[in-house]
Design a protein around this nucleic acid. Structure first.
Ligand SMILES: [Mn+2]
Ligand SMILES: [Mn+2]
Ligand SMILES: [Mn+2]
Ligand SMILES: [Mn+2]
Lengths: 227, 227
DNA sequence: TTGACTTTTTAGGCTCGGCTAAATTACAAT
DNA sequence: ATTGTAATTTAGCCGAGCCTAAAAAGTCAA
C-alpha cells in the first residue's frame, strides 16, 4: 500500500485548502478576511479558526494581522486558485462528460476537489477543450493563476429592453439553480430585461421560450454580457 | 461551505477504509489477518496498528482476537468491498473514458477511491456498461457485495500447447504492467503457453504478434481462461 | 519444562484540527 | 474620556491516528 504518490507537500491537506479557499473568496470582496466570517463559512467556531489561522500564518500561507484579519500570501493564493480551478473543472466534467445536471455538480465537485491528481486535472481540461467557465459561469483560473478577462454585468444594471446573453448565475444553491434552469435562465441564454416592478416586485425577463417573472433576489444572481 | 453532504456515517474515513481494505485482502489468503502484516501493508508500526485495530473492533467493523488476528464483521466487509468496487470502477473509468494507460490508473484510483460519492460510482458503472473487471482483470464487486463467478487459472498451470485467453494480470506494479502490455500480454489477449525452461528459466508464450519470453516471476501474475 | 525468540499489546507522547470558557482588544456611543 | 458591546485571541481540553520504548504473551526447540 504505497504512500500518496501524487500528493502535495506535507501539510497541504483538506482543512488547509478549505481555509485558503474561503479566505480567497472573502478577500475578493473586502481587503482582509476576518476571523468570524471565515469561521462561519467553514462551520467552525471563531476560536477554532483563530488558532488555525495562526498555524497557516506560521506556514506562510496567510498574512495575519491580529484583530484585523487575514490575506493570502502568494503561495496561499496559488493553492486557493488551484482548488477553485479543480472545483470548476470538475463541475464542468461532471456536467458535460458525465451528464449530471447543473444543480447537482457542486456537491460532487466539493467531494473530489482536494483528492484529484494533477494528471487528472490536466486530462479533464483537455477533454473539455480548455473551458474558461464552470456550468454556472464562474471563471476557471488558469494553471498559472491568472483569470480570463470578462465583461459580465448584473442583469439588473441594464436598461429595460436591452438584449443580452447570460454569462453567470452566481449561486451554489441547488434549488435555485434547478428552478432558474427550468425557466431557461442559464449561461448562454439570450435574454432581454423587460422590467422591474417597484417595491421589490418581480423582474420580468424575455427568453427564447417566452417571458418569465422571478423575484429580485434571484435576478440579482444573474450576470450578463450586453449585446 | 456546507458539510459533507454525500459522506458516510461519522468515523468512516480514509484511515478506516484503508485498514478494512487491507484486512479484507489478507483474510482472502488466510483466515485471520495478523497485526504485523496489516501494519506492513499500511506502512505503520505494529503498535500503531494494534491500537487502531482495537478502535475498529469497538466500532464493530472488525472481529479481533488478541494475539491471534483480525477478521471483518459484515459491516466491515461491506465497506471494504465498497472501496474495492470504487477503486476498480475508477480504474476502468480512467482507462476507458479518460484514456489513461493501464499501468497509470492504480495510483489515480487510490487518490479518488475514498472521495467519490455514490451517484458518481453509479454513473461511472452505467457509462462503462456495468463492467465485471478492472483493466487488470480483477473482479469488480457488485453493489450487493457479491462477486462474479469466474474460472481463471494461472497460465503456468496449463499444459504446454494449450490455447487460452488472458483474464487477469495480478499486480499493481506500474513498470511490470507497462512491460507486459507492450508484449501484448493483457486481458483479452489470446495466448498459448509454449513452454517453461527449467531451473527458473524463461516462459515462452505465443501471442497474435508472435512469441514472447518472460521471466517466471512475471508469468506467475498471469491468469487465463482455457479455451 | 524451561528458555529464547518473536509477536503483540501497553504506556506515554506527539500533531492536527476541533471545542468551550475566559481574557483581551477594538470600537462605537455616550 | 469613559463605558458597554462585539470581535478576537488565549487557555485548557479532547479524539483520531500515528510514534517509540517497554512489558507481556505466545511459540517453539532443547
Ligand atoms: Mn461550485
Ligand atoms: Mn460552479
Ligand atoms: Mn489497483
Ligand atoms: Mn486493477
Amino acid at each position: 500500500m504505497s504512500k500518496a504518490t501524487y500528493t502535495d507537500p506535507v501539510g497541504v491537506n483538506d482543512a488547509t485548502l478549505h481555509y485558503l479557499d474561503v479566505i480567497y473568496r472573502l478577500t475578493q470582496q473586502s481587503d482582509a478576511a476576518n476571523t468570524t466570517e471565515i469561521a462561519e463559512k467553514l462551520g467552525v467556531t471563531p476560536s477554532g479558526a483563530s488558532v488555525m489561522l495562526r498555524r497557516l500564518a506560521e506556514r506562510k500561507l496567510v498574512q495575519l494581522t491580529p484583530y484585523k484579519g487575514a490575506t493570502l500570501t502568494p503561495e496561499g493564493r496559488r493553492l486557493a486558485l488551484r482548488t477553485i480551478r479543480r472545483h470548476r473543472l470538475l463541475e464542468m466534467f461532471l456536467h458535460q462528460v458525465m451528464g449530471f445536471a447543473w444543480h447537482e455538480v457542486d456537491d460532487h465537485a466539493h467531494a473530489l476537489e482536494t483528492a484529484i491528481t494533477e494528471p487528472i486535472e490536466d486530462r479533464m481540461d483537455e477533454m473539455l477543450g480548455y473551458p474558461t467557465r464552470c456550468p454556472h459561469g464562474h471563471l476557471i483560473p488558469r494553471k498559472d493563476g491568472t483569470l480570463p478577462k470578462v465583461k459580465d454585468v448584473p442583469i439588473l444594471s441594464l436598461a429595460p429592453g436591452m438584449r443580452s446573453v447570460i454569462r453567470c448565475v452566481d449561486t451554489d444553491n441547488s434549488d435555485w439553480l434547478k428552478y432558474l434552469g427550468e425557466q431557461g435562465l442559464k449561461p448562454g441564454a439570450k435574454v432581454t430585461l423587460k422590467g422591474v416592478a417597484p417595491y421589490g416586485g418581480p423582474v420580468t425577463i424575455e427568453t427564447s421560450d417566452g417571458d418569465v417573472a422571478i423575484g429580485q433576489n434571484l435576478a440579482e444572481l444573474i450576470y450578463v454580457e450586453p449585446e
